[in-house]
């Protein structure tokens, strides 16, 4: 079975380490916050200028001046700091964020990512995504492995305009966890009950299947 959104978030959360500063994109990445292990202290960065994003407020603590990058009202946790947008992106671009999780339309074997623009459709903008992929050392892309019509999104070469070039090394799809090395996807883990054959079929870019591929457990 393909992973649910919650399972994808759970799997990403296994990459967290105690003491990490983490930037979570909108969508599935946001859900990762729900699976931070209780014995770990992880600080979430929101690129509008908040390091130490807390939970959503109550009606009583709701504050129009306290939002996250998705423009939702949030709170600041103990130990948080607030700063301007240049400072926020200095953290991101300067490589100070330990883990970045974001979505994509396509990735390819060269580590290119396309996530912001579909020609012919209205372009709303890249927001902070280009800065995040250019600045982070450790990025996990979360995405569906193939389109609803079965077309692979893991490609020999991205067909859409890029968000960043050569910056992606880790990809979690609803079918598999893969790494990108030397111009190929390397299959590391399969979703429970998903066959290696299905992953081969749905991966258009060069795929290497090592002998020790694991099956994820939840």
């Amino acid at each position: 079975m393909a992973l649910t959104r919650e399972q994808m978030a759970q799997r990403v959360a296994r990459e967290l380490k105690d003491g990490y500063y983490v930037n979570l994109g909108i969508g599935i990445p946001t859900l990762v916050a729900n699976y931070v292990p209780a014995d770990m202290d992880v600080m979430l960065q929101s690129e509008n200028g908040l390091l130490g994003m807390g939970e959503f407020p109550t009606e009583g603590t709701l504050d129009a001046d306290m939002i996250n990058a998705g423009k939702q009202t949030v709170t600041a946790r103990r130990g948080a700091s607030i700063f301007d947008s240049a400072q926020s992106f200095a953290m991101i671009r300067g490589g100070h964020v330990d883990l970045t999780v974001l979505g994509a339309f396509e990735v390819d074997v060269q580590g290119n990512i396309a996530s912001w623009m579909i020609p012919g459709k209205l372009v709303k903008g890249m927001g902070g995504a280009m800065d995040l992929v250019a600045g982070a050392e450790n990025i996990i892309v979360t995405m569906t492995h193939a389109s609803k019509d079965g077309e692979s999104k893991l490609l020999p070469q991205c067909s859409l305009p890029l968000t960043g070039a050569g910056c992606i090394r880790k990809v979690l799809t609803d079918l598999a966890y893969l790494e990108i090395e030397d111009g190929a996807f390397i299959l590391r883990e399969t979703a429970p009950g998903v066959s290696i054959e299905e992953i081969i079929e749905k991966t258009a870019g060069k795929l290497i299947v090592p002998d020790d591929v694991k099956e994820m457990t939840f």
Partner: peptide, 29 residues
């Protein structure tokens, strides 16, 4: 890009006419 926009304003105010950034390399930007 959001970080580039922030830095463009910061640099503008600080008397720096331009700067190099990896953000947007290889993209339409």
């Amino acid at each position: 890009p959001q970080g580039t926009l922030a830095e463009k304003m910061r640099a503008g105010g600080a008397g720096i006419p331009a700067f190099y950034t990896a953000t947007g390399y290889g993209t339409p930007v």
